[in-house]
Design a protein around this nucleic acid. Structure first.
Length: 523
RNA sequence: GUCCCGUUCGUCUAGCCUGGCCUAGGACCCUAGAUUUUCAUUCUAGUAACAGGGGUUCAAAUCCCCUACGGGAUACCA
């Protein structure tokens, strides 16, 4: 037999945002498809009319695109100049495939694999309650309408009851399923009831639509959450009833909250994927981190690229145990990725977070300044959303935090030092503060690299020259470097942490620096 | 209740299939130190695990059984 082209799918229902667990399921499907050289299909399971929304759909598509999980077939979508979707096996929305489901229902009804059931939701709830009360080992539909006569059905219809359609399961049969992750598992159909394929009115339910679509879309492998494990058994029997081979199944464990429990609304891992984007998590870092939740790249490497993952990915090596979501490691990973970026990439990514601090047009008007400023923070953030708080002191006089207050009050002479420093700076060719004309200073300077410490315009002061002058003053005052620097930094930046002292002064610029020193100083 | 799956450092995991190379490896976190004007980065070192109990075997983290605990399923949701 010829091996069919591998075809995998991710089939979300647009009833909410794409959380990280869903993204990981999509990713494993995607990675397996890519590693096998097959196709990755995105199918939208929108048969739950009450809860499906177009907004959720857009969020899901944008979330996948952001993570770089691109789909070959499915809804059309364009992001970042790339288009996704299309394909010859559509439609890819289940609500556009109702004719197809209807045709197969007729076939199954005719062959006896399916039958009409007239039970109402109330009746079924009552049945379940009775079973529970009687401590029955089986809880579920008891097959009471399995073999209704034509007369009985006519009677129900006459009462105006619209039937649902159920799949007839074997009563007592051991079904052996092979799972790519769990291995061979045996399930007795005694545990499974005759499940509903189609709602009254004709809209199909998950297990039925899913199988029809997997057949029509020629799906060869299904990777999904372990909550679908038993659905796999039901689906396998339906595939057989329809005369088709069942795809290979792989059921992956769920992501757990840090306590080891089920993920609930408030847990970090259930945030929408787009929230991570908006908070300045690098997409590649999020991708990398969630890949690690249940799968390992190698014994001694945690950081890897998409391509490396595809090359190394094997579905069988996904773990069977649920993984807890660890924000610390995610954040560490984000910092790792940000530090690998070029300064230009960092600037581009930072813009959306920093620009709100500035007046309209100020980002472009102060490109050189911002480049120098941001360069100092690339290795000091894990998320881009940390940037505004870390940069605010450059644009407005800061309130002193507790540590800064302490530093400022540590030595009785500190106010004199501040005043002396203000005098010194006032007489120097220091750059003007943000918003001023800094062209002579800011051109192409990247502060952390001494070799770049060369302003374009002759005569403009560099951070290193500022440092020489400052050290001379400190010597004159007869104090230690540390004694001087801590209170001054506090007065200037409002905090005791941050980039190198001279870089801070140089970047802050003359007018703001002098103003703040005078505010806290005394001659 | 019943059925299915799982359980290696606090966390993610390597090792388990094909017992011996495991005095159990890596990473995050934490701690200490080095570097630095602070913070961050970087580097070095350290703490820390085979859920418990039986068995099989010359030998078990690795194979078998039981217990405990955790997760999943048991919908006219997906």
């Amino acid at each position: 037999m010829i091996h069919p082209t591998p075809r995998l799918r991710f089939a979300p229902s647009p009833t909410g945002p794409l959380h990280l667990g869903g993204a990981r399921t999509a990713m494993y499907n995607w990675a397996l498809a890519r590693s096998l050289g097959g196709a990755f299909v995105l199918r939208i399971e929108d048969t739950d009319r009450a809860r499906s929304t177009d907004e959720s759909l857009q969020i899901i598509l944008a979330g996948l695109a952001w993570l770089g999980i691109d789909w070959d077939e499915g809804p059309e979508f364009t992001a970042g100049g790339r288009s996704f979707g299309g394909g010859d096996f559509g439609p890819y929305f289940q609500m556009q495939r109702l004719d197809r489901y209807a045709a197969l229902v007729e076939q199954l009804l005719a062959s006896g694999h399916a039958y009409k059931c007239y039970c109402t939701p109330e009746e079924l709830a009552e049945l379940r309650a009775e079973q529970k009360a009687a401590k029955s080992s089986f809880i579920g539909y008891d097959g009471r309408h399995r073999d209704l006569t034509a007369e009985q059905r006519a009677e129900k219809e006459a009462q105006g009851i619209q039937p649902n359609i159920r799949f007839r399961m074997p009563d007592d049969e051991v079904v052996r399923v092979h799972d790519l992750i769990r291995g061979d598992v045996e399930v007795n159909t005694k545990q499974l009831d005759d499940w509903v394929m189609v709602r009254p009115g004709g809209v199909p339910l998950y297990n039925f639509a899913c199988v029809v679509d997997d057949i029509d879309m020629k799906i060869t492998h299904v990777v999904r959450g372990e909550e679908h494990f038993l659905n796999g058994v039901k689906q396998r029997l339906l595939f057989e009833a329809l005369g088709h081979e069942c795809p290979q199944y792989a059921h992956i464990p769920l992501i757990l909250n840090p306590k080891g429990g089920k993920l609930s609304k408030r847990d970090p891992g259930v945030k929408s994927t787009l929230e991570y984007r908006d908070l300045g998590y690098p997409a590649a870092a999020v991708f990398n981190y969630i890949a690690l939740l249940g799968w390992g790249f190698s014994a001694d490497r945690d950081v890897f690229t998409r391509d490396e993952m595809v090359a190394a990915f094997q579905i069988g090596s996904v773990g069977k145990a649920g993984a807890k979501f660890d924000v610390d490691k995610l954040h560490w990973m984000c910092g790792e990725y940000i530090r690998t970026w070029s300064l230009d990439d960092f600037l581009t990514a930072s813009r959306g977070h920093v620009e709100p601090l500035l007046a309209d047009g100020a980002w472009d008007a102060n490109a050189g300044f911002l480049r120098n400023a941001l360069a100092l923070f690339q290795e000091r953030v894990q998320l881009l959303s940390e940037l505004p708080d870390k940069l605010r002191w450059l644009f407005e006089d800061p309130a002193l935090d507790a540590a800064a207050q302490k530093n400022l009050g540590k030595h009785a002479d500190a106010p004199q030092w501040l005043a002396a420093y203000a005098d010194l700076l006032e007489g120097m060719d220091l750059p003007p503060s943000f918003g001023g004309d800094r062209a002579a200073f800011d051109t192409a300077v990247r502060l952390p690299s001494p070799e770049d410490d060369a302003p374009a315009a002759a005569g403009a002061l560099t951070p290193n020259q500022l440092g020489d002058a400052t050290r001379a003053l400190i010597a004159e005052l007869g104090i230690k470097f540390g004694q001087f620097v801590h209170p001054v930094r506090a007065a200037l930046t409002g905090t005791n942490k941050g980039p190198g002292f001279f870089d801070c002064v140089w970047l802050l610029g003359k007018d703001a620096a002098v103003r703040r020193l005078r505010a806290h100083g005394r001659a």
